[in-house]
Amino acid sequence: MIVDFNTAAIVAIACWATGMLLGLLAIRTPALKLPGMVLSLAGSVVMAAFIAFYWALLDRPPLRTLGETRLWYAALIPLVGFLVEYRWKIGWLKYYCMALAGFFLGINMLHPEVFDKTLMPALQSPWFIPHVVVYLVGYVLLAASSVTALHNVYLQLRSKGNVSGESVSHYLALLGFVLLSFGLIFGALWAKEAWGHYWTWDPKETWAFLSWLAYLGYLHAYRYKIDQSKLQWYLALAFVVLLVCWFGVNYLPSAQNSVHTYTQS
């Protein structure tokens, strides 16, 4: 193996960890801010480079197994944190994001991947990459939205007002919903070409529809001017549905005949 996953993962985690540490120290010593940011970013760059090498090594996009999708999350989630900091000057989200990314890499290190180059014929489709990538980015945004909402709930419990945090969780959920919709429809269009029908209530489809409904519900509750601080609970918990959809479906009794069960990783 030319590219060693463990090395890449350890380097990335080390980058994020020192980046986080420097970021926290920068509160007292502002000179440490820049190196902290560079190191945090470097962690994602290492993961992105690993994905690129791995892609070339496999001759197919590494998007087939659960473990492979975790690589993408690990690379992308911190980027959302950095973007939020850049756009809204909210610094704390990136720490959650980097910790989450490190957690995903940790799972992969404990469960070494089955390196498998084969791609079954049904997955050899121009829809494969857009469908999965749109979903990945959507999930990343919604994970960040959920983490933000959780932080907001924590602040509420300590009776601290946090209007800007609430608007961040809202916009992340909005963008995530848009991407979920695209993922769902791309999946339907692909299914028509590969399996003959755009919708068959396959368990994964049903759960994708459920998670879409969960955020559709949120957006309407928001539109109806339901108290934003109450909706933070909703947003924090809505991600659980996504988690079931992402990998919980494999363990449900309904999944025996699903076309979507990932290759065990």
């Binding site: 519900g217 309407h220 309904s254 005949n257």
Partner: peptide, 21 residues
């Protein structure tokens, strides 16, 4: 609308957990 969305979600939840066979 919201309540009916929840209604559809509840039925989908049943359909998503119980084997549809």
């Amino acid at each position: 609308g919201l309540c009916l969305i929840v209604g559809i979600a509840v039925l989908s939840l049943l359909g998503g957990i119980l084997p549809q066979e």
